[in-house]
Simulated assay, not measured.
Amino acid sequence: MNVIQEYRPSGRVVRAVRMALARRRVVIGLVVLVMLVVAAWLGPMVAPWEAGERDYDAFLAPPSASHWWGTDSTGRDVFVTTLVGLRKSLVLGLAVAVLSTAVAGVLGAVAGFYGGLTDRAFMRLADLLLILPPFLILATLASLAQGGGWVTFVLLLAGLLWMVTARMARSMTLSLRQRDYVRAARYMGVPSHTIVLRHIMPNLAPLLTVDVTMNVSGAIVLESALSYFGFGLRYPDVSLGTLIADGSAHAITHPWTFAFCTGLLVVVVLAVHLIGDGLRDTLDPRTRR
């Protein structure tokens, strides 16, 4: 019992959070990200126009007191539409990151701990998916699942973002299963799944935490790229990617239809990367200074 209790992660988590918040990059990234989240959810509530509402007297109108960020080619208010798209991109990026990282952590830990046929099967699947072009696969599958909505799109993205992290988790697990406390738990007759949950997964937490933050920006950028080429979300769903695709046709003549959504995408990616870099430096002893 003492062996199991000794490695509970609560104290390490609190200490890691304090160390992360002591880094300026993490604080700046969190502040910017919180501001974006608040704007995405509260901004449309204070705007004079509803999401999807059209002003048929103002097509491609410049920013004004009536339309703070102007209107697009269909008369929609760019301010409201952009913030609604930001909201969907944030939700989609977080959902994809959490799902793909969870899959990677579980598969990597199971493959590394059990070994044998289980290890070979999971790793051959990861190798196969790494060889195939992910953009081409996503474009093909997204076209076949157009009626599935954004949830289906989340599953597709998560299904092709777990392989690298899974291989890293497997490598760490191969080392962790040789530790004394893991061997002691096995000699005490602790079930294998309990060892994985109580000893392996908590020690993979630093890797998985950094991976979640990086996958958020990666998923948002990948969704934006797919939407730009017409393989992403479909109307009535709207995201930063779909808005960039729609506004690119008027980027020169009517820059407000393209600049605001593109600028928000850049800010989101930078904020998430600041958090991810700070967490990596905090949780990885090799980069800690």
Rank of each mutant, 00 (worst) to 15 (best):
F79N: 14
V98M: 04
F113L: 03
L99N: 00
W49C: 01
A205F: 02
V3M: 11
L30T: 08
G218D: 03
E50S: 15
G29Y: 07
S64N: 10
F135N: 04
V80F: 10
G278H: 07
K88H: 13
D119P: 08
V190L: 13
F122Y: 12
R179D: 15
L90V: 11
W68T: 06
R15C: 04
G93L: 11
P191G: 04
A145H: 09
R286C: 10
L155D: 05
S64P: 09
G116V: 07
I244A: 02
A259D: 04
G189I: 06
M172S: 11
L197A: 14
F113K: 08
R198P: 06
Q5F: 00
A245Y: 06
T257K: 11
V196R: 03
V3H: 08
L161S: 10
Y56R: 08
G75Y: 14
V80G: 13
M45W: 08
A20L: 14
I28G: 01
L83E: 03
A95G: 03
L161Y: 07
L129N: 04
L117I: 09
G218A: 04
V106D: 07
R54A: 01
L33M: 07
R87H: 08
P63R: 03
G70R: 02
S217I: 06
T71G: 05
D211V: 08
T82E: 02
W256P: 02
M1L: 09
P133Y: 07
P285F: 03
D284I: 06
G75D: 12
D57H: 15
V32R: 10
H67V: 14
A184E: 10
L240D: 09
S192F: 00
R288N: 08
T101E: 03
P236T: 12
T118A: 13
A97I: 05
G52S: 09
T118M: 08
A142M: 13
R124S: 03
G218N: 13
E50L: 14
V38F: 10
V110F: 15
T257I: 01
G116I: 02
A145S: 07
S66M: 14
M19L: 15
W41N: 12
A61N: 09
L92C: 00
A158C: 09
L174H: 11
A169R: 03
P285E: 01
G93K: 07
L207W: 06
R183C: 06
V3P: 11
E223C: 12
I244N: 02
M168G: 02
N203Y: 11
